[in-house]
Nucleic acid binder design. Sequence first.
DNA 1: CTGTTAGCGCGTTCAC
DNA 2: GTGAACGCGCTAACAG
Lengths: 352, 352
Amino acid sequence: MLVSLIKGLPLRSRGAKRLAMADVSSPRPPTAHDVARLAGVSQSAVSRAFTEGASISAKTREKVIAAASALGYRPNILARSLTMESSKLVGMVVGSFDNPFFAAALDRFTASLSQRGLRTLLLTAETNATVDEQVAELLSYRVRAVILLAVNLSSTLAAECARSGIPVVLFNRTTEDDQGGFTVTGDNAAGAAAIAARFMATGKRRIAFMAGYEDSSTSRQREAAFRSALAAAGLPEPRRAIGYYTRAGAIAAIRALLADPADRPDALFCANDMMALAAIETMRGMGLEPGRDCAVAGFDDIPMAAWPSFALTTYSQPIDAMVAQAVAFITDDAADQRNVVIAGELKLRETA
Amino acid sequence: MLVSLIKGLPLRSRGAKRLAMADVSSPRPPTAHDVARLAGVSQSAVSRAFTEGASISAKTREKVIAAASALGYRPNILARSLTMESSKLVGMVVGSFDNPFFAAALDRFTASLSQRGLRTLLLTAETNATVDEQVAELLSYRVRAVILLAVNLSSTLAAECARSGIPVVLFNRTTEDDQGGFTVTGDNAAGAAAIAARFMATGKRRIAFMAGYEDSSTSRQREAAFRSALAAAGLPEPRRAIGYYTRAGAIAAIRALLADPADRPDALFCANDMMALAAIETMRGMGLEPGRDCAVAGFDDIPMAAWPSFALTTYSQPIDAMVAQAVAFITDDAADQRNVVIAGELKLRETA
DNA sequence: CTGTTAGCGCGTTCAC
DNA sequence: GTGAACGCGCTAACAG
């Protein structure tokens, strides 16, 4: 115990370092100790001055605040998180920004979280394969929660999150096996059924479906509901193409679908709006008028769907309600449900 | 010094808390100490096992790794940042996601930063007024750098960042007064001049300009260069409208511009593509064909500009190069320039 | 190569 | 209401 007294100052002592770095570009930011010294109070007084509802006299607080702003002091949130054993960070893993639906969701998420004092740590994942690494990293940041936008997590890592007590919210995705997380999606089943109904009500018979990619729970659910609605009405199985949720993929898919003039579909349901827009433009490029020669419907109701150039009929995903639910999952502790479906509505426009 | 030996265990000792929280949902994640105990080594050995290029024997490392994965141990990055006195966080403040240009930029930024081991702390700012609060908060997180997407910072806070040695990068914005930060923009002057030249080469004479908002350096620079190019050719001042960088604003602005059939512009340069697209659709709604009845040009070259429905002539902002430059500013310490302009090119399509 | 020790900046008990 | 002391989990210096 006495050793330290004898040993002398350690090399990394604050004063020494300060001196050594005096001429370097990045000076160390002031600490609560510095403020305390200047204000003539203890470090804990400084801490209390910055803590809501701590027992401290108005006079001391004032002194502290003055000293703090003189020094440009700002509490180190990292250190705070360390003692508090929890950060205000929420990890967000996003698949692709190509779809404005997800860009908008991210926007609402950060705003909504920010309102509750939570901050967004953003990671992007090119493929589902990298999601695991990303989430593992988030665990290292001791995030409050993890939100996955249109990507999936392995059960292994989902379990690890659960073990760490970190809630995982899947946005616009579900899992077959219950991973113990939360999910919030649009009403894929109702939407697909509504679109099938619309097609049938307008006398369509040669119906096609454009999937996202096979792994996507969203695409699968929409397709399943669509198929069963058609089947229930005695219609043949829809023709099928895969657009991979990309514009290029959708264009290739629609070309294949329309290749044979003798066997063209008279209605097409695309798993999302972005693909539907690509389909519309491709049809026009081939001299076909969407809505007249071939009905087109999408899913999401992104802003562009309403633009006059497209006037796309689509089933909406109420983004604000979806985000609100996802945020509620991680801020309200008592959740009666774990998988929530938010109903949208069929937006009838000109293409179907 | 001896006091602690006499006082006995503090209430918050780890064991006690563990016990108290045994039945609570969130167990504490394992620490390096836990791993050390299980592996029969010291805590610093654990630290070394997780540090690239630390001097540790293969055998010890293996023992540690085994114990770590048995416990599900993950180094606490927050604690690490505390001792390292620097985090791997980069703060990013984004104005609006409405414009796909910025959504794409954010995407590239996170990917590019991630590649260098840096993480994105994302904040959104509705107005320029809130940017200061956001950046102040970022300072608390001891971020490595701050990147501002299409928003501006007060000189006060810019100075504070400088004092803390935190580089600030303005993306797609500049400041009148040198704030000591970095800026990277597209070539507003060259782009505007190229568009003016195109209008004049195609015989346009009644030329109009649609601004973003008055505060926007980007809009101002484009307008200034545009005006001076016209003036140099002896053309009258362009008519002017403000679209506020929003679709609704642009629609209102273009309506006003086209209100009087006797005095319609025959060419329109919009400060960005999103407004140009709105202008195109609005013209069509009024029975005017863009490119024939009135030339339209934009700025950015967002993906939609190339869509056949629009075929918008525009000056491109090479987003990858711009992001790369911005990232270089904060990762390469020796910057020879502080304000970089990335050249784009005029994309001639059908509207002009 | 390894264990011991001293902080990093802060919140928090415990005595006063 | 206030200061001293401790610990959050980790890295870095030091002595062996």
